[in-house]
Amino acid sequence: MTSTHDAPAGTDNAAHAVKIAVSGVHKTFSKAGEDVHVLDDVDLDIREGEFLAIVGPSGCGKSTLLNCMAGFETLTSGRITIDGEPVRKPSPKRVFVFQETGIFPWFSVWDNIGFGLGKMSFDKKHEIVMRYIELVGLQGFEKAFPAELSGGMKQRVEFARALAVEPDVLYLDEPFGALDAFTRIEMRREIVRIWQTTGKTCVLVTHDVEEAVELADRVAVMTRRPATIQEVLDNPLPRPRDPDDRGFRDIKERIFDILGVERRV
């Protein structure tokens, strides 16, 4: 499989080939003799280069589904393939971005971003690390430790660390959940920009419907536990998107309808 190593593919030429195929996935956790049936026959196709969001009520199994796609959890039954290959274990080809930042507090920004690069000459590594530091706009902070950075900056480091290994797929599990409202807006814009310049396939999990509509090409709506994908909505709105826009509000409305949520307070 060719990846996007040298020439990041633009979004416009994204082929509609299926990148990740989830079919008939069941997941049951057994804890203290009690079975928790979380995923119930989930089917979902994720296309090469698209930005797909998964929304659903809290605790319905969104993170579980993402963990299965990343290879962190094993399936009870069903099948998940990426480029036709079954997912068996985690791989740098598909990188997970954690809700509370998963960067290592004991490493500097530079060491964090270079974490997954393996053995290579210092000069080569430095070149790559600096390229991604620049991509996320953290020039001058390469020697800083995470404790010295703001929440948004830590998230940038995490994105850079993920991108530096040139994955095909980014899994984003509520990556903005821990950020304040202003930083969240800024980071959403940032992730769209990164996605547009690198052409990765992005899978975002969120319980924020507005966030999903703002970012994604398609929105998959999950039901309560045991969860399945209820519907996948197309979101053809042009970017940049305005939440006050008519079309934006319509899509949001439809998602809330599917979720069965009365959102007026």
């Binding site: 990343a70 962190f72 274990k89 985690p90 791989s91 740098p92 990188v95 997970f96 954690f98 509370e100 998963g102 960067i103 290592f104 974490f115 997954g116 393996g118 660390r161 290994v165």
Partner: peptide
């Protein structure tokens, strides 16, 4: 998440 990150990057 630290352990998973590490596995994720093949470390």
């Amino acid at each position: 998440k630290f352990l998973r990150s590490s596995q994720n990057f093949g470390v």
